[in-house]
Design a protein around this nucleic acid. Sequence first.
DNA 1: GAGTCGTGGAA
DNA 2: TTTCCAAGACT
Length: 353
Amino acid sequence: MRDEPMPRPDPQALLDWYDRHARALPWRVGPAARLRGERPDPYRVWLSEIMLQQTTVAAVRDYFHAFTTRWPTVQALAAAQDADVMATWAGLGYYARARNLLKCARVVTDVHDGTFPDDHATLLTLPGVGPYAAAAIAAIAFDDPQTVVDGNVERVMARLFDEHTPLPAAKPILTDHAARLTPRERPGCYAQGVMDLGATICTPKRPACGLCPWRKSCAAWAEGTAAELPKKAPKKRKPTRLGIAYLARRIDGAWLLERRPDKGLLGGMLGWPGSDWGEEAPQDNPPIRAEWKTLNAEARHTFTHFHLRLTVKTALVPLDRRPLRGEFIELPDFSPADLPTVMRKAFDLAQGQ
DNA sequence: GAGTCGTGGAA
DNA sequence: TTTCCAAGACT
């Protein structure tokens, strides 16, 4: 054990580190502009925070650009067609975020007069905005000293205070630590600084403690336990599910597609008509009468909680044939880029054969 | 509290 | 190939 108490981590040291190492990101205001008093656009802060949930900066970049180019304001987004928003989100995952994004834009436009609320409690009422996002938006866009706790902050706090209680039980403890450290000055920069620290220095594996501005006040560093924190509850193994996807192309080039129901997996997204996905062999129930051919290879895809092996069947159908399910969409109204990744994999297989 | 909900990159 | 994981929210 240590014989001396650990010095309290200094928020100012973290802010100094952030000023020197902050990454330039499209939703951030640079240091020069900030010194001129410029504030980040709440719409862009909100959009980035939703996109960044469980998603890397690298994956978000192009999507953020696509959204802000096509819909520069929350009013513009609120006026968008649902299908266009879902298609533009396609490939980013967690599609409930896109559905809630549109709901939220319409609430802000219709209920809040097109202006984002600036307080945590009201932000929390917005669709898709939870405790993390509400705190992050309040801190970053409005300089409100809210406690921002994401996966990075949990990891940094677990290490600073050498907390061995496994997540998620440790969450209240770590949140309490984070709250005590949050400064009243520049809370937005501080929040982004801790998250940047977690993303670049205090990483899940092989943390670069030698570069950390908080090393001297880190209990896990003193104990040599940083790399094994935070502890997490053991994960369940993923079962494998089986399914069939039916890719019917009409002779004029139109594809037979189906809008998935809003609730559940890939909710609100376009996809191929298909069987249910279960652990038993799927029932062959084509969406249109045709001579179906089964591809040799299957589309494999892993979701959050199961593996999928998707048998792909293809057919060419005449112009006047009516489908039992779904509807034909002609090019260019349909692009494979509008599909969630698992559906695009099936399309790629069909194209390749 | 536990399960659901995507994807791609890294090791 | 498999596992882990990334600025969580919702039920």
